[in-house]
Design a protein around this nucleic acid. Structure first.
Lengths: 338, 338
DNA sequence: CTTAGCACTTGAGTAACTTGAGTGCTAAAA
DNA sequence: TTTTAGCACTCAAGTTACTCAAGTGCTAAG
């Protein structure tokens, strides 16, 4: 009970919690001396710590962990918040990506933290088609479509040396050989046998291979969206510019970020400070949750805030949000799948 | 001479300049008392100012202005810098946009400030074609091409209610009526007569009109690139998070940014502190320059740094950069135009 | 017109002191 | 055995006083 009160007090005030203030908050009547004894015991267990020898206590990482695992009760979400989520997701979206992107925005707005969102089950997508669309005299757009409905495109210019027939032959080659394969296999094929085969049709295949590679990498990338980047400036205690820069750089690197998010699991996960793989994040906490879009797989949303965040509210919010988002996506798919 | 020395000293040290230190720097032999008299005169003219009644002097905005207009000599660019520029621009680029984007990056890296780049003469482009490319069962990609070679695309899903014939008719309508018109005219047409005409072919034209509008706005947007966003954290003196946020928000708004950049002119322009239209930028300076891509018009590069920046070096750098970039673009166009 | 000299100002840094919130421990009370 | 009152002790943070160095403006002499 005391640990719970300490975490709650500290996360909302940001000031180390002393025995007297704490005694006043507790539901039963106890003196500050009693609280002091209990606090000494909690410190012995490593659940709380002092900032200096005569200071109040703050929760340690271990203390937060215990709180999150055993004590926290997710706040019931406010009607107002649910209204905001619902209305923001309500609009007419042309692509799933737009929904996922706004999701990160909504979540960051609601929390004033930084939010991440990942679309459902992106990894296992397969190549379902590649084509070149002529746009002008010398301009061509390369379009790559995957079986989960993503399309990536890239325009480029061609030199006169290549004829339309040649290009068509190459496109046919790609489609014959690679359609239906998972994108990572296509990528590795592009690094091995494909160049030689393309070389049969083109004298200088580098240009084409670069375009195809580019558009393929774009499609294969675990693309995630970040909302409320700038909020980091608010909730970060650090005044060190280099540290902020590292954080922003981390957020722009999808691979590193995927590492940080870790293996998604069905319940809401909380990673606290030094529990995170990445050292730069030692003063932050991350709440991760999957959302279930039915037949279309599962996606991930995540929330990055300071270690001293009001976990009950945030966990409640993330929990509600994952549900709303899942519902919205199922609606979306129903509308177009029919 | 004294003003010049003050600006040079202050921009490199960041500390108000006193009479004694200044006297030692000057080429002829004068006492500090003489310098003090001259400084009093310069202060009278409003060219320099004190931070407190017994402090050294710093240049005022007016002082910087005079310095930039009459005293500064652009530094000759270092061989090393030009190497960096040349080699960074050397690679094989598929689109002008990539060149423009890397330009902003290079310039920000060289200066540790924040750089902006705008592609040549974007405004007057005209619609040269619109088409819909079917991708899958229900997925369509809308592609809009302009006469200066830009292509914008957007994928979207269609409901069953629309047939291929209907879509074709609409595309024909768009092309017949609007090709050849400047994008802003197309935009205004989209808000007036077009919806009615499209309604002749489609029962629910909203979806299509949204897609067309989206892709059109994207193409019409004065798209500029920002390099070295994060550098702002270094060179900004402000510790005020809200101010930083406003700055970042400003940078993400192309319209506002276009205002800030102002009318481009052929020589290198410097805007100092409060000379800028936007109040948030009062502690910053902006160096703007056009680059001339021959027949393909002129573009803009700009550099945002602290008011106390080493103008001679920065002006020299921007001057050299505009030349290199112009050359690179001319090469690029020659290669593809033939 | 330049310079030496001097009284004066001010921010920045440092040391000494005060204050208040908090602790641990002991011994008495429950 | 647990709780509580009491008390000596600790420490960060704030305040005050003081010193120091860099700088100024002004006057009078060169």
């Amino acid at each position: 009970m005391i640990l719970k009160a300490i975490v709650r007090d500290y996360t909302s005030s940001g000031v180390p919690v002393g025995s007297k203030a704490l005694a006043a908050q507790l539901p039963m009547h106890v003196s500050s001396a009693t609280v002091r004894n209990e606090m000494a015991a909690l410190e012995e267990l490593g659940l709380i710590a002092k900032t200096h020898s005569s200071s109040g206590r703050i929760p340690s990482v271990k203390g937060y962990r215990y709180y999150v695992d055993h004590l926290v009760q997710p706040d019931p979400i406010k009607a107002n918040d649910i209204d905001i989520i619902k209305s923001s997701l309500e609009g007419q979206f042309l692509k799933i990506d737009e929904i996922i992107e706004t999701s990160a925005k909504i979540l960051s707005n609601l929390t004033s933290y930084t939010a991440f969102s990942l679309k459902p089950e992106h990894k296992q997508s397969r190549l379902s088609g590649f084509r070149l669309v002529p746009l002008g005299k010398r301009q061509v757009m390369a379009v790559l479509v995957t079986d989960n409905g993503d399309a990536e495109s890239q325009t480029f210019n061609i030199t006169t040396k290549i004829t339309g027939d040649q290009l068509e032959a190459v496109v046919r080659l790609i489609n014959d050989q690679l359609v239906g394969k998972p994108l990572d296999e296509v990528l590795s094929a592009l690094k091995s046998e494909i160049p030689m085969q393309v070389a049969n049709y083109l004298q200088q295949p580098e240009g084409f291979l670069k375009v195809f590679g580019d558009v393929l990498t774009k499609a294969a990338q675990e693309r995630f969206y970040v909302g409320g980047r700038l909020n980091l400036l608010n909730f970060s205690d650090s005044n060190d510019v280099d540290e902020l820069k590292s954080l922003y750089t981390l957020m722009d690197h999808s691979d590193d970020m995927a590492d940080v998010l870790g293996q998604p699991s069905d319940h809401i996960q909380v990673k606290i400070g030094s529990e995170m793989t990445n050292d730069i994040l030692k003063d932050y906490s991350l709440i991760t949750a999957t959302y279930d879009a039915g037949d279309h797989g599962k996606g991930v949303i995540a929330l990055l805030g300071p270690t001293r965040m009001p976990y009950s509210r945030m966990i409640g919010l993330v929990g509600a949000f994952r549900q709303e988002l899942a519902q919205r996506l199922i609606d979306y798919y129903r509308y177009f799948d029919q």
